[in-house]
Amino acid sequence: MMPAVQWLKRAACALTIAGAAAAPAEYSRPPEQTFLTFPEWYLVHSPAEYAAYLGSGAAPSGFPLFARIGQFWQGYAAMSRETAPYPFNGGYHLMIMVIGSSTTVEYGIKGLYEQIIGRLAEAVRGPGPMLPEERFAARYAQDYVDFIRVYPWYQFDFFARLNQLWQALPALARR
C-alpha cells in the first residue's frame, strides 16, 4: 500500500497537470494549497468519526480526543514538509493554524471533561442505555457534521444548541 504522503504527491501532480489544461486560471490553485487542504479536511472528517462513535452508544470517555489532536498536527507537519519546495502560502497556513488551534482547545476541553467527569459519571451510572444527555450529545455531534459538510463551521448556531440542552435536559430538575 502506498504511503499517504506519496499518494498525495502523485495526486497533486496529476491534478496540477490536468488542472492546467482543463481549468481556467481563476479556478486553479497551486500545488501547495492542494497539500494544505489535507489538515482542513481532517477537521471535517474527525467530527464525523466522533459523531458516529457517540451514536453507537459507546462510552463517550473512550473516544481518543487527545490522539485526534496529535493526528491533526502530525498531518499538518507532514503537509508543511511537502510544501517546502513551493512558495510559502502564508494565508492558508494561518487559516490552518487558527482552525487547528481552536480544534485543539475544543478537543482538549472535551477530553479533560470526559476523562474526569465523564469517567466518573460512567462509573456511577454503570452499564445500560444511553442517558438523555448522551443521546443529545450524539444528535448534536451528527447535526454539526451534517452542517459542516455544506456550510462553514462558524455559521453553526452553537448557542441555540446550548439553549436546547438546558431547556430539554434540566439535569438538576429531573433528579
Score class of each variant (00 low, 15 high):
I148R: 03
S102Y: 08
R175G: 15
V105A: 14
A168C: 09
N163T: 12
I69L: 02
G100D: 07
F156A: 07
W73S: 04
P24D: 12
V150I: 12
R81I: 00
R139V: 11
I148L: 04
G118V: 06
I17G: 00
N89M: 06
D143C: 08
A51F: 04
E82D: 07
M97W: 07
W7Y: 12
G91Y: 02
E26V: 14
A141F: 02
P127L: 10
A160G: 08
F159Q: 13
S46D: 15
K110V: 12
S101D: 08
F63I: 00
W166N: 05
W166K: 12
R29D: 08
A160R: 14
L43S: 11
T37G: 00
L15E: 15
Y154C: 08
R68L: 01
R161F: 06
A12C: 13
F66E: 12
E26Y: 12
H93D: 10
D143W: 07
A121V: 01
E133R: 06
F156D: 03
L54M: 06
V124T: 07
T34P: 00
P39V: 08
A137F: 11
Y92R: 13
S80C: 07
E134R: 14
T34R: 02
H45N: 04
A59L: 06
R161G: 00
F136H: 06
A67Y: 04
A160K: 15
Y140R: 14
P152R: 08
P127D: 11
V124K: 05
V150G: 01
A25I: 06
I148Y: 02
E122Q: 14
L112S: 09
C13P: 00
S101C: 08
P129M: 11
R119I: 09
P85D: 01
E32R: 01
V98A: 11
A25K: 09
T37L: 13
P132K: 09
S102D: 13
F63G: 06
L169N: 11
A18R: 10
P47E: 11
L65E: 03
E32Q: 15
Q74I: 03
V124H: 07
F63L: 03
P127I: 03
F66P: 00
P31Y: 05
A25M: 05
P60E: 08
R10G: 08
S61L: 05
S101M: 06
T83K: 07
P47H: 11
Y113Q: 09
L165T: 00
P39D: 11
A14M: 10
G108C: 05
G57H: 12
N89R: 06
I148F: 03
A173P: 05
M1W: 09
A14H: 13
V145H: 03
A23H: 04
P170Q: 04
I99G: 02
W7V: 09
W166E: 11
A123I: 04
P24M: 01
E114P: 01
V150H: 06
R68P: 00
P129T: 12
I99H: 11
A18M: 09
M130S: 14
